[in-house]
Write a protein that binds this DNA or RNA. Sequence first.
DNA 1: AATACGGGGTT
DNA 2: AACCCAGTATT
Length: 404
Amino acid sequence: MQIYSFLFKWKKNCQPIFKKNVSLQSVRTMYVCSNQLVAGLEKTKKKCMSQIENKLEISRLLRNWYQKHKRELPWRESSDPYIIWISEIILQQTRVAQGMDYFLRFTGRFPDVASLASAEEDEVLKYWQGLGYYSRARNLHAAAKDIMERFGGVFPQHYKDVISLKGIGEYTAAAIVSFVWNQPYPVVDGNVFRVLSRLFAVDTPIDTPKGKKAFTELAGVVMDPEYAGWHNQAIMELGALQCVPQNPDCGVCPLKERCMAYGAGTVQSYPVKQNKTKTRDRYFHYLYINYKGKTWLSRRKGKDIWEGLYEFPLIETDRAVDFAGLQETDAFRRLFAGAGKLDVSVGLSGVKHVLSHQILYATFYRIEIERENEALQSFLSVPVEELDKYAVPRLIHIYLEKLE
DNA sequence: AATACGGGGTT
DNA sequence: AACCCAGTATT
């Protein structure tokens, strides 16, 4: 029973990092889980003491490793919550190398909350062009306005206020308050899932609410709350550089003696995932319509890909069709009714564009018309040389590059 | 609980 | 082709 009183004390120390009160049993499970020497635990308080040392030792090893191996990144030079915020949003589901230029350009143009809040959404999207997950940019913009109104333009410090902002979830809120103010909230991102699942050989699927909860608790247990920010960066960096998804070089890992998966030779089988994403095929026919140096665009609206971005008039079919087939569609006939004779050429055909849940097969037609007709009124008329002012999806950009 | 949301890199 | 990336919001 001695062990329980000790665990209780331990739990009390760690309590601030848990959002809800957790049961003693749950703490014990985590505690046992957070150490390899599961069998030795039930013995003495002294033994237990050394295990606690072990727990802190993991955090210490991570931080030491981090000091030696961390990358120099621009946002790591800053302690401005705004800068950290921007970097975290850009880095969601995005590699550092891919987001770097965007970060520099974005913070150059929008150096603080006020400048972002007062910008037009179209300009914010333009700065996001090509990065993907465009709701991040729209939410960033909305959140900046929100900060102006609700917090007087000052970035909030309380976790509950931070997470109340659009586009900021558990991970990003924890990252901001721990990096900037060293608040003891554990971060749980793809890296942390991987490191922890291997370190403690946890086979709970990470892509379920249950898995997320379990790993968040475990992350809180492993973290030394006194060095929360440092620890959080360290464990993510380890996942990014050392404990990589495939073929990690475990021989040089600072945690190899403590890694249960490494000990069992099962590193490759972690983390466990349950849901496989399924994709669907779509067939896009873009119409680059020309008349007196002008063309036409439309702004995509909600509940589909690329919300807020611009594109050429689009006809989507449910199967692959050639131009003859396209001409027969109602959409095509309506669009060109009264436009006179069409001079059609194929700009790009059979472009395959892969998204996370869709595979797009796109063809671009360049169509000269004789007259502006009624149907074109519902589109935005744009001088051809001003096309680059509009934020467009990567797929459209590929075609624009070819036009030059 | 499951799925949608981009684009690019690695193996 | 499959998997993953400093995840979040919606259904």
